[in-house]
Design a protein around this nucleic acid. Structure first.
Length: 562
DNA sequence: ATAGGGTTAG
């Protein structure tokens, strides 16, 4: 009892007083030590036991896993096998979790083979752990195979698969399997619902998400703070700050994640002052911010160009809150400085960092160089990114767009050739819009939609009106050396423009047109959309890869700073 | 005495 409840000193005293200790007493003590994170002591006791059984071994493997010592757990598992101890569902469950913890796919596969030999593959615990391991190792195909073969499934196995889809970027599949699960009359619990809402958030699927909100209310699962937190995130990611705010106020219990979710929602929308004042309110309520909260605050500062405030909160995070910055925080700072055009300062900042930026950090710097037309630092960023991730198209694409904007077509061609030789492919830009429960997805110059004729005609007529109003196409966003008229056509057929035209045609007047894009919105499209919002008197909300743009009567909520 | 699934971010 003492061991379990964390009174480890009392437990230790009683343990010492027991004259003849049997194996159960040892095992219990080891469990207690591990729960209290006394790992060295637990291992010592384990090593000095007069006699061990399978449970002793499983206990130590589980404890190591739960303390994040995945490699050590797997090593102990191997030792256990060599010593000839019998393994059961508990052992397999723990060691598979450990494999997932440090992405040890090969070891996971070997253990899978062993599980089949020992006839444990039909065990529901082992099956769930297996498919979770494959998902964590980013092998969704194997996970699906395990899932299909499982004869018995419960809410945990279904949730593990759903989460696996979501975490590997297959958000649509996550939503699909959620529906499947309900058809199989498995009732979702708080984990399942929270997770499917989070997938909806990644799809920016407001309608679907709102239905899950309804389901949360009807089932009572809304009471779980995690479910409500997922909903706040959803509303934030869909740009519905009013809904996020309303739900936040309705919640009876809030934790630091609830506050952080709302802070991040405001930050994504670019409402820097609101983000900061919400953060200050959070502090005033005695809520302790964590590293994620600061990502929200810092990114709000960078989106609004509040360089001094950004410095201030970075200092505040390190000195007052004693949070060690991780690469994400450094990326925010790189973004803060470089986007504001202070590229030399960004360079100095990077050189003073305790470690080199990660790929996202370099890509951030590179994209600011593109914005500011800085070739010198841009080259440095592109080369560094290329060294880290040779297959990442961003190093080629962004650098070549700097060259293209300067008319240096020879260099553009060189990069293109390099890309081909390396087998690097540009991530295709897609924009999508939801209409009548169906997602309509567009890529540049796409004619696959049954409504293409109408869409292109709409764009053509809009283009003429835009020109009348003073719109000038910005050719620097065309990465090809072609005739001017061809460039204009290419610009006018960008995926976001196609999706917006679709919205203008089909979304009823008075409703917001909501478009999502997988990459950052293009500068010319941004400008054009401002004109379109004024000409048509429609509200257009575009969520790109990093933030929201709300276009209304010729103005964008980002204030053209992005 | 031992086990399997989530929520916040660039």
């Amino acid at each position: 009892m003492y061991a379990k409840t964390g009174f480890i000193n009392d437990a230790n005293r009683i343990f010492e007083e027991i004259p003849e200790k049997n194996i159960v007493v040892y095992n219990t003590m080891i469990t207690g030590l591990l729960r209290c994170r006394f790992i060295v002591e637990a291992e010592q006791l384990f090593d000095n036991m007069p006699e061990k059984d399978s449970i002793s071994w499983t206990t130590i493997i589980t404890g190591l896993t739960q303390n994040g010592l995945f490699k050590e757990a797997v090593d102990k598992f191997k030792e256990m096998g060599i010593e000839g101890f019998c393994m059961d569902q508990f052992t397999f469950g723990s060691v598979l979790t450990a494999c997932g913890g440090f992405l040890a796919l090969d070891e996971g596969k070997q253990i899978h083979a062993y599980i089949i030999r020992t006839d444990y593959q039909d065990n529901i615990f082992v099956g769930s752990a297996l498919l979770d391991m494959y998902c964590k190792c980013r092998n969704v195909k194997y996970a699906e195979a395990v899932f299909r073969k499982m004869r018995h499934k419960n809410v945990i196995s279904w949730t593990a698969m759903l989460v696996g889809y979501g975490q590997n970027g297959y958000s649509e599949e996550a939503v699909r399997i959620f529906c499947d699960m309900q058809r199989n009359e498995i009732h979702p619990d708080d984990f399942t619902l929270g997770s499917v809402i989070s997938s909806c958030a990644n799809l920016a699927s407001l309608e679907e998400g709102a239905q899950f909100h309804g389901q949360a209310l009807a089932s009572g699962l809304i009471c779980f703070v995690t479910v409500s937190n997922a909903l706040i995130t959803l509303y934030g990611k869909c740009g519905s700050l009013e809904h996020a705010h309303q739900l936040f106020h309705e919640m009876k219990i809030r934790d630091e994640v609830s506050w952080t979710a709302l802070v991040s929602g405001y930050a994504q929308f670019g409402k820097a002052n609101e983000t900061i004042s919400l953060f200050e309110t959070m502090l005033a309520h005695g809520i302790v911010p964590d590293g994620v909260t600061f990502v929200g605050v810092l990114s709000a500062c960078s989106r609004a160009g509040l360089v001094e405030k950004g410095y201030h909160y970075f200092e505040c995070m390190v000195k007052e809150h004693r949070i060690t910055p991780i690469p994400d925080h450094y990326t925010c700072m790189i973004d803060l400085l470089s986007r504001a055009g202070r590229l030399e300062e960004a360079k100095n900042f990077i050189n003073q960092m305790p470690f080199s930026p990660d790929a996202i950090g370099w890509a951030t710097l590179l994209s600011s160089c593109r914005l500011n037309g800085n070739l010198e630092i841009g080259k440095w960023a592109a080369e560094s990114l290329h060294k880290l991730e040779p297959q990442n198209p961003a190093s080629y694409i962004l650098l070549s767009s700097i060259y293209a904007a300067k008319g240096k077509w020879d260099d553009v061609a060189k990069l293109r050739k390099g890309m081909r030789e390396m087998g690097v492919k540009k991530e295709p830009g897609h924009s999508w819009i939801k209409y009548k429960n169906k997602v309509h997805i567009f890529s540049a110059d796409d004619r696959s939609s049954p409504f293409s004729d109408q869409i292109y005609a709409k764009l053509e007529s809009l283009y003429l009106k835009m020109i009348e109003e003073g719109y000038v196409p910005d050719m620097s966003f065309v990465l090809h050396d072609v005739e001017k008229s061809e460039k204009i056509k290419m610009l006018n057929h960008h995926s976001e423009k196609l999706a917006i035209a679709f919205g203008l045609l089909f979304i009823p007047d008075g409703l917001q047109i909501r478009v999502v894009k997988n990459l950052r919105v293009c500068g010319d499209c941004h400008n054009a959309t401002k004109y379109i919002s004024r000409i048509t008197q429609r509200e257009i909300l575009v969520r790109d890869a990093v933030r929201f743009h709300l276009f209304k009567d010729g103005v964008c909520s980002c204030g053209d700073f992005w």
